[in-house]
Every structure is written in structure tokens, then in C-alpha cells.
């Protein structure tokens, strides 16, 4: 059975339902599955619990799903770039669970690896530790955090093959590899889809076993949040 779908709408067909949990890869707007987010919006699915490091900006990335009120709850580490998010949260229209970024990354990694919980020093003595099991190891206190999984993970890679093997590019990798492992169904969009066998097996970041559906990204915007440059010397 082929993993290759014609477009984002086709790739999400039959796997979406109201009140589902979705993981979405990316850091800020870098390495986000743009086509799949738009298809998710157009599907009209509602009550989404979204696990994603950030919430996009008001008119791009997951911000698109906040505009349409399709997201019920966000699990994130930083949402400072999204004013609509802040407004919905302060008006109690949106549930929010902040996780330290490393804890979020490790919870997703653990979820994908079948590890239900782990201990970490991060957050001990803070709001994050409230209600969590504390345990001492070698005289240091740690808190227990649980693994995370999702009904569907949507990820973005640079190159992929028809088996679903993925290669990421530069800092667009971020949360995508762990999320690919933690989705019951993982859908990947790639800039370039090649024939099986064309990728160097030694260079593959995410193995095809974790990817059930794959599409070619179309019309990527790849928006830059903070364009910072320097002057050429002597210019």
C-alpha cells in the first residue's frame, strides 16, 4: 500500500475527528507543516488538543487554527508571538498547559518510545512541579513527567522517499523527529519526494516505520519571523 498521497487534504482524509490530539512540528515558523495546517483548518475538525512548541503567529502556522477556534487546548513551551492566543487564554476561551521546552521534547520522545514516564530536575520548586511525584536520586530531587502521544502527528521534512524515510534541513528539524514517532498516524510533508533507494541510508533522520502518509509541500511560504542581517564590511 502506497504511503504517498496526492495533497494535504487527501493525506488527512479519514483520520481526523473532533476532540482529537494533534502534534505539529516546528519551532516558531521554522519547519512547520504549512500545507497540513491549512488542510486541517479547511477540514473544520474542532476541539483539537494541539501539542506544539509554539502557537504560530496571528495569521500563520497554528495561529490559523486559533483564528477559527478549532483549538480547545494547547500544550506548548512559548506562545509569546501570538496575540490572539494571549487574548483567548486571558478570556478563558482556551486551555493552556505550559511545559518547559526540554520537558516537552522529552515527553514526546518518551511517548514515541513507549516510555510512560521519566524523572527530571527541570521545574523542581516551580509551578510546573505542582501535583507531580517527587523522587530523590543521589541526594537531588526530581519530578516525574509523563510521555505524550497523539492521534495524528503532522511534520515537515526537507527530503523524503516513498517509504517515508525523512531528512530534515538545518534548524527546521527541531520537534519534527520526535513527533513523527509519537503519532498513532504520522503525516509528513516534504519539499522533495524521491524514489525509494535514492536517500543515503546513513543520512536518514526519521525512519519510514514512523511515517504512514507523505505528501509533497506545495507553495511553501517559509515565513521568517525575525529577519536579522549584517552589513558587508566595506559596503
Amino acid at each position: 500500500m502506497s504511503k504517498v498521497y496526492s495533497d494535504a487534504k487527501d493525506a488527512l482524509d479519514g483520520i481526523l475527528f473532533d476532540n482529537m490530539t494533534i502534534m505539529a512540528g516546528g519551532f516558531g515558523l521554522c519547519g512547520i507543516p504549512e500545507n497540513l495546517i491549512i488542510a486541517l483548518r479547511d477540514s473544520g475538525v474542532s476541539g483539537i488538543s494541539a501539542i506544539s512548541n509554539n502557537a504560530g503567529v496571528d495569521d500563520f502556522g497554528l495561529g490559523l487554527l486559533l483564528q477559527t477556534r478549532q483549538i480547545k487546548k494547547m500544550v506548548s513551551s512559548y506562545v509569546g508571538e501570538n496575540k490572539e492566543f494571549e487574548r483567548q487564554y486571558l478570556a478563558e476561551e482556551l486551555e493552556l498547559e505550559f511545559n518547559p521546552q526540554g520537558t516537552l521534547a522529552e515527553r514526546i520522545r518518551a511517548g514515541g518510545a513507549g516510555i510512560p514516564g521519566f524523572y527530571t530536575k527541570t521545574g523542581v520548586g516551580t509551578l510546573v512541579a505542582e501535583g507531580k511525584e517527587h523522587k530523590d536520586f543521589d541526594g537531588e530531587t526530581y519530578i516525574m513527567e509523563t510521555g505524550l502521544t497523539a492521534d495524528v502527528s503532522i511534520v515537515k521534512a526537507w527530503k523524503g522517499d516513498k517509504e517515508g524515510n525523512l531528512i530534515f534541513r538545518k534548524t527546521a528539524r527541531n520537534f519534527n523527529p520526535m513527533m513523527a514517532t509519537a503519532g498513532k498516524v504520522t503525516v509528513a510533508e516534504v519539499e522533495e519526494l524521491v524514489e525509494t533507494g535514492e536517500l543515503d541510508p546513513d543520512q536518514i533522520h526519521t525512519m519510514g516505520i514512523f511515517v504512514q502518509r507523505i505528501i509533497i509541500s506545495k507553495g511553501l511560504e517559509k515565513r521568517i519571523e525575525q529577519l536579522t542581517t549584517r552589513q558587508r564590511e566595506g559596503a
Binding site: C30, T171, I224, T229
Partner: peptide, 27 residues
């Protein structure tokens, strides 16, 4: 912390890469 060791300076004008940002989301 978004996933890079060995961070270089800001790019020259016209050479920014959207796949290459720091944790402050700067190119």
C-alpha cells in the same frame, strides 16, 4: 536550544535562510 551547536553571526542581506534561525527566531 532549537537545535544547533556552533552558531554563526547574522547573515548578509539577501542571504537569510528561513530554515536557519536561533532560539530567538532570528536568522
Amino acid at each position: 536550544e532549537n537545535g544547533m551547536l556552533g552558531m554563526g553571526p547574522f547573515p548578509y542581506e539577501g542571504e537569510a535562510d528561513p530554515d536557519l534561525i536561533n532560539a530567538g527566531k532570528q536568522t
